[in-house]
Design a protein around this nucleic acid. Sequence first.
DNA 1: GTGGTCTAGACCACA
DNA 2: GTGGTCTAGACCACG
Lengths: 128, 128, 128, 128
Amino acid sequence: MLLRLDMASRTPIYMQIRNQVVLGIAAGELTPGEKLPTIRALAEQCGVNMMTVNKAYGLLRHEGYITTDRRGGTVVAGSPGAGALSERYLGALRIIAAEARLAGMDEDGFAALCREAYSYNNGGADNE
Amino acid sequence: MLLRLDMASRTPIYMQIRNQVVLGIAAGELTPGEKLPTIRALAEQCGVNMMTVNKAYGLLRHEGYITTDRRGGTVVAGSPGAGALSERYLGALRIIAAEARLAGMDEDGFAALCREAYSYNNGGADNE
Amino acid sequence: MLLRLDMASRTPIYMQIRNQVVLGIAAGELTPGEKLPTIRALAEQCGVNMMTVNKAYGLLRHEGYITTDRRGGTVVAGSPGAGALSERYLGALRIIAAEARLAGMDEDGFAALCREAYSYNNGGADNE
Amino acid sequence: MLLRLDMASRTPIYMQIRNQVVLGIAAGELTPGEKLPTIRALAEQCGVNMMTVNKAYGLLRHEGYITTDRRGGTVVAGSPGAGALSERYLGALRIIAAEARLAGMDEDGFAALCREAYSYNNGGADNE
DNA sequence: GTGGTCTAGACCACA
DNA sequence: GTGGTCTAGACCACG
């Protein structure tokens, strides 16, 4: 699992880390129970501060994607609670859909794009 | 066209305005050639600073969604250039898709959600 | 609203701040819509670092006790969502109850103590 | 007496052990004079370090809940000194009460919850 | 050795 | 002027 961060992006670094981990879990690259790098290790590997990684891990932990074992170590959790997931993404999806529509993409094309995004297994998401 | 802004949202106000205008155009609520409110009017109506509206209009203009008429009015433009739109949204879509997948949604469910977002006609989404 | 922090306490400072704000809201000392001190102001007033206050505010925001207005300022929110509140406190209450029981307090005495805690309007909680 | 520990909890393991023992005594599951497992045995049973169990036992001993017999065994003590117990819990109780109140619970409901916590016979609380 | 917490600075986006 | 983010250190509790 190699993180690729874009220091010039408008997306905060801690959010990029968070996104990459989520993508990694969804892609099966990170499996439940697997141990994540320590805060210090990941910070050094990425060339960022510990606090930044800490913030990303804290966010992921809060979202239920990872848990922190008291005996030292951060591990990938199972699936987070389902919750009202539909509503949560609808807002963002609507905006993307509106932009795609105005750019000339029809509904089928957009659905195909979404399916591609769903089945895509990581690779080069610049996660902005 | 009534803008509904959430001052407590993490999404910057200027971006919320921009998003609502894009949604409005996509929904046909704002038609090409239609005149938008003046910066001053919209700022007063929404209770925000003129600079904020100005920033939103500038962004929309830069993206090609609106143009500024010689005599000072701001009008809705036609469709912006198509461009390689797929690549632009794939990053964000992948993250949303990953979250949806981890929340237990299968590909068909996600595609259905995306179609719903595509055909949705405005409403009041204020998320990014 | 004056915060009293105990630097020697085992309770993290950010948690002490969080607790005092919660107590203040419950006591009616902080009313919904009221503006809280800025991070900088509170940090200086308490003699702690901005990041510490920031963490406390972030926690309170996440818990729904306060919201941050984009136009600058942190305000007291209304009531946070009810949720399954009973379950959340039962664990902690059971331990306190067990200790009280072993110290010789009977059920009525404990209930009286709890009522006192409920109706107490701030004052000198050392919030450990 | 079976301890159930949550390695992902924010409560330190030694404190979880301490809490469970206190709950066990209060519930009558552990009776005065009863022998507790050796540090080594409990550590193995729970899959934690001996130092951790030692710390929990040390805390319990310091609080008067258990004593160490001459011949090396650790046994449940009688009731610890009563003391001014009210003041000791008031701080924590006030915070819980404030949260419950803000979550919409009235005084009677809170008192009922406290009585339930008092009469509860163990179960598996691992919170602080 | 792990994460949790804190400090004393700093820069930037937003309004 | 506000909060958001980040840095480069540091100390401590826990295991």
